[in-house]
Amino acid sequence: MSALSAAVPYRLTGRRVEVTGPLDLSGAGRETAEAVCFLRECQSQGLRVTWRAIGRPSYDTGLLSHLPPPTELPGAGGELAVWRAGYVHGSLYHRRGPGFVAVLDRRAGLGTAVRLTLDHPELLAAFLRLQEPTPVGAVDREAVGLLVAERLVLAAGGWAVALPPRIRRWPVPCTAI
């Protein structure tokens, strides 16, 4: 199992992760990108996460509906209820091939599944670079804009991070997804 980010304090017990402090979802800077990256990697590894949020999101929280919802999200009672009701493991993920990334997006509100293949060199490079929280200026702005428009990247507070996890472990039975 690859290591989780040291930027987020957590306790790992078996396949359960308990985040020991609140995660900033405000979108005001690097902290939000680190929090989203941490949650994405937990999902990628098939870990169950218990966490709480601070900060009122400055973006559509529907972007994060593929990630496990927090136990609390200040000032967003209705949004949290929608997030909890709509959360399904594996509703957004990516797979890698030689020279491309295939993305499946079945998040709520999109209706049907959307399948995307990122094979354009600049888009692919930007997506792979954004697996880690990155200042927006350090990545091709046009590529980031296209990925944001497709709801594959969260860009807020001058930082950007890719949203689809690379699923390495499916729950049993995996046919339930």
Rank of each mutant, 00 (worst) to 15 (best):
residue 61 T to Q: 12
residue 148 V to G: 00
residue 45 Q to L: 09
residue 137 G to M: 11
residue 126 A to R: 06
residue 78 G to V: 11
residue 41 E to P: 01
residue 77 G to Q: 12
residue 77 G to W: 09
residue 90 G to F: 07
residue 41 E to F: 01
residue 149 A to T: 10
residue 55 G to E: 00
residue 121 P to Q: 05
residue 110 L to N: 14
residue 76 A to P: 14
residue 140 D to T: 03
residue 150 E to S: 14
residue 73 L to G: 02
residue 98 P to H: 15
residue 54 I to T: 11
residue 27 G to C: 09
residue 126 A to Y: 02
residue 42 C to M: 00
residue 96 R to K: 13
residue 105 D to T: 13
residue 86 G to I: 13
residue 68 P to R: 11
residue 119 D to V: 05
residue 111 G to I: 13
residue 102 A to K: 14
residue 132 E to C: 11
residue 63 L to G: 06
residue 109 G to T: 09
residue 90 G to A: 09
residue 101 V to W: 03
residue 117 T to S: 05
residue 113 A to C: 13
residue 54 I to W: 05
residue 134 T to V: 07
residue 28 A to Q: 08
residue 135 P to T: 08
residue 88 V to N: 12
residue 110 L to Q: 15
residue 128 L to I: 10
residue 28 A to H: 07
residue 72 E to W: 09
residue 93 Y to L: 15
residue 86 G to K: 15
residue 36 V to N: 01
residue 99 G to T: 07
residue 153 V to C: 03
residue 49 V to A: 03
residue 97 G to K: 10
residue 143 A to S: 01
residue 149 A to F: 08
residue 88 V to G: 14
residue 115 R to G: 11
residue 143 A to L: 01
residue 77 G to A: 14
residue 83 W to P: 03
residue 109 G to L: 08
residue 29 G to I: 06
residue 74 P to C: 07
residue 50 T to L: 12
residue 123 L to R: 06
residue 117 T to N: 04
residue 42 C to G: 00
residue 112 T to P: 13
residue 33 A to L: 01
residue 44 S to F: 04
residue 82 V to H: 15
residue 118 L to F: 00
residue 59 Y to I: 07
residue 30 R to T: 09
residue 30 R to Q: 11
residue 45 Q to D: 02
residue 138 A to W: 10
residue 132 E to Y: 10
residue 107 R to Q: 07
residue 141 R to F: 05
residue 91 S to M: 10
residue 89 H to E: 15
residue 21 G to N: 12
residue 134 T to W: 03
residue 105 D to L: 11
residue 110 L to M: 13
residue 103 V to I: 12
residue 118 L to W: 02
residue 87 Y to T: 07
residue 64 L to F: 03
residue 122 E to W: 12
residue 45 Q to P: 04
residue 69 P to Q: 06
residue 47 L to V: 09
residue 144 V to E: 00
residue 56 R to F: 01
residue 136 V to E: 09
residue 76 A to Y: 14
residue 66 H to L: 07
residue 110 L to R: 15
residue 26 S to W: 07
residue 125 A to E: 11
residue 22 P to Y: 00
residue 84 R to E: 04
residue 127 F to D: 15
residue 115 R to K: 14
residue 22 P to W: 01
residue 143 A to N: 02
residue 19 V to P: 02
residue 51 W to A: 01
residue 130 L to P: 05
residue 79 E to M: 08
residue 71 T to A: 13
residue 62 G to P: 07
residue 64 L to V: 06
residue 44 S to K: 09
residue 122 E to T: 13
residue 108 A to N: 12
residue 36 V to P: 02
residue 150 E to P: 11
residue 118 L to K: 01
residue 134 T to L: 06
residue 117 T to H: 02
residue 51 W to N: 02
residue 79 E to W: 03
residue 125 A to F: 08
residue 142 E to F: 12
residue 122 E to V: 13
residue 128 L to C: 11
residue 150 E to C: 14
